[in-house]
Design a protein around this nucleic acid. Structure first.
Length: 844
RNA sequence: GGGAGAUUAGCUCAGCUGGUUCAGAGCACCUGCCUUACAAGCAGGGGGUCACAGGUUCGAACCCUGUAUCUCCCA
């Protein structure tokens, strides 16, 4: 579902940009998702009884490509169903020939610049995927673990009657065999006497030193820490500092290794249980506590991550990432919403070197070559590598040249995306020789993506862009929310709580799904997705279709012989409604444009929704709809019909980014058009240069009056068909919208009077009084009660305003506009009270 | 452990620089209507102590402090 949201937003942006006359280009594509894909392919082969280990690299890759051909296009097909208006001819894949070559070129270039190095480092090891994963691919989850207090005997005290022990607390007793020291804080008085002493590691009886380091927190556990440099990053750092040996007690599958010297071959978790039992038996367990700790899991395989020492390739991040940090901090690249700037900044300022090698086959193979004698070179081809190695090792035979087995992290290819989709040669050619496409489209305008890959992808694209073009890759990064279900869980295929987008489209239509997704997606906030939003989207599409049916069915009074001349006059009410809606459309269009400019998508959609449903359908169309006489609709005058068609066309355009299918359909059903006259390339409407706010306000007033009359009907149980008469108490006559009021409220007449109308039902809007003479008698008691209630309300209001105005400090400090408004409120309230009191008097 | 953000109607969210009776929208809900575009609809209606406690101010949903709860990111 994340894809659906993401791509709907992109499509809305691209369609609107296209309509505004921009050369809008949206490049679709996919990455090769090395870990996930390889895991899928391995599993698939296993079902067929084939083991990866039995296959050659080439054969395995054939299977992987087969899998990619079969499943890789699914998402793109879903996008087409959703109506994504991509530039499909440009569809790209991170393992396309050109893109792959660019990845290799990038590696070589960065290596030559000294950014890439190879080294033994502590990496996050996925014992199931059998590969290192980056820090960002580790998900930390809280879990309950056991903190085991294990007693280590002080060496040399074993012959004493009462041997001396030091107790260490550990959550990972299975790594005891890898211990090469015990560490305490030098200021911890409990242990100062142990300076220079050694302890005996249980199980393996190894004698290791007690070391002192500030790193240890004296308050945690016993204040003593077992140091296992091979299995914990902090221990590793301690080991480096104190020059401790490293014993790797685990295999890459997460089993106990030969080097451990005990429990060899046992699974790490089974070993943890067994070792606690054995130590307890030996009397070496002081106690066991339950504690909450965070455990890292592989994002791809969900296996518990094992910190593991291994030889990996790294990219030095400190220098290369600096321009990318600046670009966001100084606003050159805008993050939307802005709250992500802090997160980004924090990450970029504390960036770690990026482990870019993966122990997989599916991906771009690292262009590093070895001679088996300890020499390493980086080169594009074996021949080049051979030549380079020859320089270091004259006795080398070409058969000795072996390429590194690992591939590069997928993000090491997708970070080039904004450049290489246009020009795969950019890495070697440089910006000055970039092709036309890249020069034209780069930097791109908008990137829409999920906040979870802000660092994986967004930050790195900025880094690569700055490095190879000197420019940012995009102006705006719109970060969508995460799609969650009603219980707040992230929607994912693995959890099985995600509806199939194609099913949703079948049920609600692509337009319905698009509208549904965006109705509930505030920028940057997660969205609690529920199918009912799609239902609302479908209902809206239905409403639009019905409005079209109505308009399409209008019979225009235009005998062919009289073309160009009216055969019937345009009703005043239609004329007034057209004047109003022209203003309303402009007003709302400006609001919608403003929402777009601020990337407030759901607000832009809701404004569109209300403009169409409320203003156009509920008010405008009702106002111009011809009357029925003898069961037949009267024909409509041509001026009104033409104006209505123009309005509908403008509205269709405004709706088009959200609902491309229905708007295109209606666009073509409305009239015969040229083959190229499609709404997808129609021009985005423009608004009037000046908007008559006064007139808009006047119409709002008229709407309120109509509503009041409808209320009276409901209260008095009068049929909507019974015509009523309304009087307005006023000195001036003729509001522009009287004819519309007469039509919509179904009045026999709308009159003005300077005198109160006796015995009529009365009400007020703002400070104006209205009367409706009713044939049936007014219930005096009911009326009195209603008026008294109103009176009470206005008196209360008056009081609060008067208090405010009599407060000297308020009058002295408040802005003059505010005081003026308060004064007006006061006088309005007074006049209302007076008129209600007068009415009350007349009832008695 | 460090950092970021949030808490407003049953649900999902707006609410800009403190100032209109400012507490708002959509959905859901309630009432009445199958009124020849639309019951996937029309007309009308109810509903919130703006998380809590203080403070600043003539004035606080909005600014400050603390508390609680939740979410996310990093270690």
């Amino acid at each position: 579902m994340g894809h659906m949201l993401n791509n709907t937003i992109q499509d809305v942006l691209i369609r609107r940009a296209r309509m505004r006359g921009f050369n809008a280009c949206w490049v679709p594509g996919t990455d090769h998702a090395s870990i996930a894909t390889e895991a899928k392919v391995v599993a698939l082969l296993k079902e067929q009884g084939i083991h990866k280990a039995d296959l050659s690299r080439e054969d395995f890759l054939k299977h992987a490509w087969g899998w990619k051909e079969k499943y890789g296009g699914i998402i793109l097909e879903q996008l087409k169903k959703l109506g994504a208006s991509c530039d499909w001819d440009r569809t790209s894949f991170t393992m396309d020939e050109g893109m792959s070559e660019a990845v290799i070129d990038t590696f070589i270039d960065l290596y030559n610049k000294g950014y890439i190095y190879r080294g033994v480092r502590m990496v996050n090891w996925d014992p199931q995927g059998l590969t290192a994963v980056s820090d960002e691919e580790v998900i930390h989850k809280e879990s309950t673990g056991k903190l085991v207090y294990v007693k280590y005997m002080i060496s040399g005290t074993e012959t004493q009657d009462v041997p001396e022990f030091i107790t260490v607390a550990t959550t990972r007793p299975e790594t005891i065999m890898g211990d090469t020291a015990v560490c305490v804080n030098p200021t911890d008085e409990r242990y100062v006497h142990l300076k220079g002493k050694h302890v005996i590691v249980p199980i393996v009886n190894r004698i290791v030193p007690i070391i002192f380091d500030e790193y240890v927190d004296a308050a945690f556990g016993t204040g003593a820490l077992k140091v296992t440099p091979a299995h914990d990053i902090n221990d590793f750092n301690l080991g480096q500092k104190h020059k401790l040996p490293t014993i790797d007690a685990l295999t890459q599958e997460g089993k106990i290794s030969e080097a451990a010297g005990a429990y060899v071959g046992l699974d790490r978790f089974a070993c943890r249980k067994q070792i606690i039992l054995d130590l307890t038996e030996q009397g070496l367990v002081e106690k066991v506590e339950e504690i909450k700790n965070k455990v890292g899991y592989s994002e791809r395989t969900n296996a518990v991550i094992e910190p593991r020492l291994s030889m990996q390739w790294f990219l030095k991040m400190e220098d290369i990432s600096k321009p990318a940090l600046d670009a966001v901090v100084n606003g050159d690249v805008k993050l939307i919403p802005e709250k992500f700037i802090n997160t980004y900044k924090h990450w970029m300022e504390n960036v770690h070197d990026w482990c870019i090698s993966r122990q997989l086959w599916w991906g771009q193979r690292i262009p590093a070559w070895y001679d088996g004698q300890g020499n390493t070179v980086v080169a594009k081809t074996k021949e080049e590598a051979f030549a380079l190695l020859k320089a270091k090792n004259t006795s080398i035979d070409s058969n000795d040249v072996k390429q590194d087995d690992d591939v590069l992290d997928t993000w090491f290819s997708s970070w080039l995306w904004p450049m290489t989709v246009f020009d795969p040669k950019i890495i070697t050619n440089g910006w000055d020789k970039a092709n036309e496409d890249l020069k034209y489209y780069y930097p791109t305008n908008d990137l829409v993506t999920a906040p979870e890959i802000l660092f994986f992808w967004v930050a790195r694209m900025i880094i690569a862009g700055k490095e190879y073009t000197g420019l940012k890759p995009f102006n705006n990064v719109y970060l969508t929310g995460i799609v969650r279900d009603k219980q707040g869980r992230k929607m994912s295929k693995s959890l099985g709580n995600s509806p199939d987008p194609l099913d949703l489209i079948a049920k609600y239509g692509a337009d319905g799904v698009r509208v549904g997704m965006l109705l509930c997606s505030p920028a940057g906030n997660d969205l609690m997705f529920d199918e009912s939003y799609c239902e609302q989207g479908r209902n809206f599409a239905n409403k639009v279709w019905n409005a079209f049916r109505l308009i399409n069915g209008f019979e225009v009074s235009m005998p062919e012989a009289l073309e160009g001349k009216e055969t019937i006059y345009q009703p005043e009410s239609s004329k007034a409604a057209i004047t109003w809606f022209e203003q309303k459309l402009s007003e709302q269009l400006e609001i919608i444009n403003d929402h777009y400019s601020k990337h407030r998508m759901s607000d832009a959609l809701m404004a569109t929704y209300k403009l169409v449903w409320d203003d156009f359908c509920a008010w405008y169309l009702e106002a111009i709809k011809p009357d029925f006489v003898d069961g037949k609709a009267l024909p409509m005058d041509k001026s009104t019909f033409d104006a209505t068609i123009n309005f509908l066309e403008a509205l269709l355009k405004i709706m088009h980014p959200w609902m491309p299918f229905i708007t295109e359909e209606i666009w073509h059903s409305l009239k015969e058009r040229d083959a190229k006259d499609c709404i997808i390339v129609a021009e985005w409407p423009t608004s009037l240069t000046t908007i008559d706010k006064k007139q808009l306000a006047e119409f709002e007033f008229s709407k309120e009056l109509v509503t009041m009359v409808r209320n009276v009907r409901a209260q008095k149980q009068l049929s909507p068909k019974e015509k009523l008469e309304v009087f307005e108490k006023s000195n001036s006559e003729r509001s522009y919208f009287d004819t519309v009021i007469i039509k919509l409220a179904n009045l026999s007449a709308f009159n003005y009077t300077t005198e109160k109308v006796d015995g009529a039902f009365s009400f007020q809007i703002e400070t104006t009084e209205f009367y409706i003479p009713l044939s049936s008698n007014i219930n005096v008691e009911e009326e009195k009660e209603r008026l008294l209630k109103e009176l009470e309300y206005h008196k209360g209001f008056l009081k609060s305003v008067s208090v405010k105005l009599s407060n000297e400090k308020f009058v002295a400090n408040a802005k003059p506009e505010v005081i003026t408004v308060e004064r007006k409120k006061e006088s309005d309230a007074l006049s209302k009270i007076a008129s209600i009191e007068e009415q009350l008097k007349s009832i008695f």
